[in-house]
């Protein structure tokens, strides 16, 4: 039974006040990132801008969200303090998302292009880009 005791009694957390400080710092970082994301999201609404710039801002927001995820998993969930092999068994399978996201978004946009090229049935076409700027209440 000895192994069981060592198993559960192993704490790998920095002690006391130091940790609480780290939590407070992380909270501030998460809040600030969220506010930056909101400002970027709202700027796309408030100012008319080119599609490419919009895409760039969306990319920035995605990267900021990934940073938030990193802080939540690393600090709040303490994954960073675990044994490396354990971290790898969680993180490596998630790499499939790289293919998953790329392949399916490509599929979606290809679907759109094919429909726009070959399907001549009356569909709602987009005044898309200019539409989001200005004059709704």
């Amino acid at each position: 039974m000895e192994h069981f005791i060592t198993e559960v009694s192993f704490h790998h957390e920095p002690e006391g006040k130091e940790f609480v400080k780290k939590v407070i710092r992380t909270t501030i970082i998460l809040s600030v990132i969220t506010i930056i994301e909101l400002l970027l999201g709202l700027s796309m609404y408030a100012f008319p801008m080119a599609a490419l710039l919009k895409l760039f801002l969306k990319g920035v927001i995605v990267i900021l969200s990934l940073a938030k995820a990193f802080y939540i998993v690393g600090v709040f969930m303490h994954l960073g303090d675990e044994v490396k092999n354990l971290i790898m068994t969680i993180v490596l399978p998630l790499l499939i998302f790289v293919w998953f996201i790329g392949a399916f978004l490509y599929e979606g946009s290809s679907w759109k292009n094919l429909r726009n090229t070959y399907n001549k049935a009356p569909t709602v076409t987009a005044p898309a880009e200019s539409h989001s700027s200005g004059e709704h209440h």
Binding site: L105, E107, G108, K112, R115, V124, T125, A128
Partner: peptide, 13 residues
């Protein structure tokens, strides 16, 4: 979420 993204990418609007 990826399914949502796929459909969203497939729409003109």
């Amino acid at each position: 979420l990826i399914s949502y993204g796929t459909i969203r990418f497939s729409q003109n609007y």
